[in-house]
Structures are given as C-alpha cells and as structure tokens.
C-alpha cells in the first residue's frame, strides 16, 4: 500500500470508530448548529445525521436549557478549555430512553457530558465538540447506595 492509500484506510477506520463507539459525539458551531452527529446520537435520538445537520441544537432538543448550556459552552469558545457536566448536577442533557428498556430500572439515560474546543489552524475556536457518556449504571448504583446509607442512619 502506498502512503496515501494507507492514509485513506486510516481515515475510514477513524470514521468507523466514530460511528460505532458507544459515546455520543456532536460538533457544534458558534450559532449552535449541528455539524456532526454520530451513530450513538442517531440511534438513541432517532434523528438521522442528514436531519440533524445544520439544525439548531436547542430547537431540536427543547429539553436542553439554552441559557445554561450557552454559559458553559461560551467559556469553551472563549478560553479554549474544556467544560463538564455530571449526572449528579443534571441527570441528562438529551432525554434518551434507558439503554436497557426491559430489565433496566431507570426511566431515562443518565448522562455525563464533556465539551471540548476544536481549534482552527490559527488557534481560535469556532467549533466545539460535545461528548455524551451513558452513566445510567453507575448513577443507579449510587442512588441505591445513598438509599441504603440513609436507611442505616435512621
């Protein structure tokens, strides 16, 4: 294989990985339009990438508090640092159903999220990437544990 062929193959691998990984990936621009929508987001939201692309994040998902999210995201754009949300603070960003619909006990998917800056060549940031993790299991265990602790203390 020549170098350029190898590069193409690697590119395809990366695309496959992005599509298959059990983590949600969304790229947003300055106006919070969706630029990238991976397989996880597609499968859990039921919205295809071609339906999502170019749409405003907040008009597509009314459950996201616009002011709150923008406050977080603006620091990422400005300071070029990461921002985090955890399920204890906000149980979910996107209201997806639980990944174990039959045996699971949670009514929705608990989520942690990270927002990372995507830099331009000149170092400025015009796009951000939202990474969504499914933390339903650990959130439920934590809840159970807290319940048991409370019982022990009474």
């Amino acid at each position: 294989m020549t170098d350029s062929q190898l590069e193409m193959t690697e590119f395809h691998w990366l695309m496959d990985i992005l599509q298959t990984i059990d983590v949600g990936l969304v790229v947003l621009d300055r106006s919070y339009s969706i630029k990238l929508w991976n397989g996880f987001m597609e499968n859990h939201s039921g919205i295809r990438p071609d339906q999502a692309k170019g749409q405003n994040l907040f008009s597509l998902f009314s459950e996201i508090d616009e002011d709150w999210f923008k406050k977080k995201a603006e620091t990422v754009f400005l300071l070029n640092t990461r921002a985090f949300t955890i399920s204890e603070q906000r149980p979910y960003l996107f209201k997806f159903s639980n990944n174990h619909p039959i045996t699971g006990r949670a009514d929705f998917m608990y989520q942690n999220a990270t927002i990372i800056p995507l830099n331009n060549v000149d170092g400025t940031t015009d796009n951000i990437c939202l990474i969504v993790y499914d933390v339903t299991n650990s959130a439920m265990s934590k809840k159970d544990l807290a319940g048991i602790k409370a019982l022990l203390n009474t």
Binding site: N43, N99, P101
Partner: peptide, 15 residues
C-alpha cells in the same frame, strides 16, 4: 447476562 441494543427506532435487550 443482558445487553441492550438500539438503532433506527428499534430498541430491546438480549438476555
């Protein structure tokens, strides 16, 4: 062991 699966409007679990 159970494993959830989801895609294109179809969701379920394999037990």
């Amino acid at each position: 062991v159970c494993q959830g699966f989801i895609g294109a409007g179809v969701a379920g679990e394999a037990l």
